[in-house]
């Protein structure tokens, strides 16, 4: 079993080591101490940046289909209206089913798919095993040679070895303090991300559902999950996770601000913002809320003058 895992993870481990070593070399060339924990931490941060940047095309695709989702907003609203006030599980499921069907029909699926998550899991575990290797001062599978592995394994940040977790700290107060601070930071960033999605980017119908309440309850179990990981995972792995969380938070903020779910609080805020901006410029454009409907009504506001038959002929008839 471990062999199968090892074989699957081998290429990812190789890539993880290559990226780490590259950043480490660059930072050392810039004059940082090669054995300092900070250099290694920054290399891990670099690894996150590379991984998340590689996932940007997927993210951009998501944004694009979310923009196109604006076009089908009236249809989504229709579905939401049909299930308004129906809070039982059966109706909720029927509603998600219909929404998903609409996404497919119109090619506007705004969800990112399960792939980005699944790609990150082996990276995370590879980093974990690279650190584990380094801890026992074994040679890596690729560019992480004996010397670098030892340097990584022995490195410490403010005196707290990166390879240790709370469970292996054996009373090292610094490790416990740093790990705890990171658990708090991770909880905070995850909390903000979830809160943003849940309170701002969901329609009122969604907020009334039992699933939503369940999700909110889970928000308060999160600290426990992170506390557990702070207890088990070495500091180096925690740095990867923390940086990745912060990236997600910022990315989420940008998405919610610019491409909110139609009908949500964030969408209303965005419309208000756009209206204010156009007012400042001296133009009053009817907002695209409820897509199209308002615009059409606005066109008809000028009443058509009654004309007598002869004039109507002259006006409407084709010119000969």
């Amino acid at each position: 079993m471990p062999d199968i895992f090892g074989t699957i993870l081998w290429p990812i481990k190789w890539a993880v080591e290559a990226i780490l070593v590259t950043f480490h070399t660059v930072l050392t060339t810039l004059g940082m101490d090669p054995d300092n924990g900070l250099t290694w931490v920054l290399s891990i941060v670099g690894l996150v940046l590379v991984v998340r940047a590689a996932l940007i095309p997927i993210f951009v695709k998501q944004i694009k289909s979310q923009r196109r989702m604006m076009e089908v907003a009236p249809q989504i609203k229709k579905i939401q209206d049909r299930y308004k006030g129906k809070k039982d599980q059966f109706s909720r499921e029927a509603m998600s089913r219909e929404t998903m069907e609409l996404y497919k029909r119109t090619g506007t699926n705004p969800l990112s798919s399960c792939l980005p998550l699944l790609i990150q899991m082996p990276i995370f575990f590879s980093l974990f095993s690279v650190l584990q290797n380094a801890q026992h001062e074994l040679v890596g599978v690729g560019l992480l040679n004996k010397q670098l592995s030892t340097s990584f394994g022995e490195s410490s940040l403010f005196g707290a070895p990166l390879k240790l977790a709370i469970s292996t700290a054996e009373g090292n107060v610094l490790v416990i303090v740093i790990a705890s601070v990171m658990v708090v930071l991770m909880t905070a960033s995850q909390f903000i991300t979830q809160k943003q999605i849940m309170s701002k980017n969901q329609s009122p119908e969604m907020k009334a559902s039992p699933t939503y309440k369940q999700q909110q309850m889970l928000l308060y179990i999160l600290p426990l999950v992170f506390a557990f990981s702070g207890f088990t995972f070495p500091l180096g792995v925690m740095f990867y996770w923390l940086t990745s969380n912060i990236w997600t938070m910022v990315q989420q903020f940008i998405v919610i601000r610019n491409m909110p779910t139609p009908g949500s609080e964030a969408a209303l805020a965005r419309e208000a913002r756009l209206a204010r901006r156009s007012q400042r410029k001296g133009i009053s454009i009817t907002e695209i809320d409820a897509a199209g409907e308002a615009v059409e009504e606005a066109k008809k506001t000028q009443r058509q003058q009654p004309v007598n038959k002869n004039r109507a002929k002259k006006q409407g008839g084709p010119k000969k």
Binding site: S96, R97, M100, E101, Y103, N109, L111, S112, S113, C114, P116, L117, Q190, Q194, I197, Q215, L218, L219, L222, V225
Partner: peptide, 10 residues
């Protein structure tokens, strides 16, 4: 729930 909705299917 840590990641919210991501799946493109129902």
């Amino acid at each position: 729930p840590l990641y919210g909705d991501v799946c493109r299917y129902y």
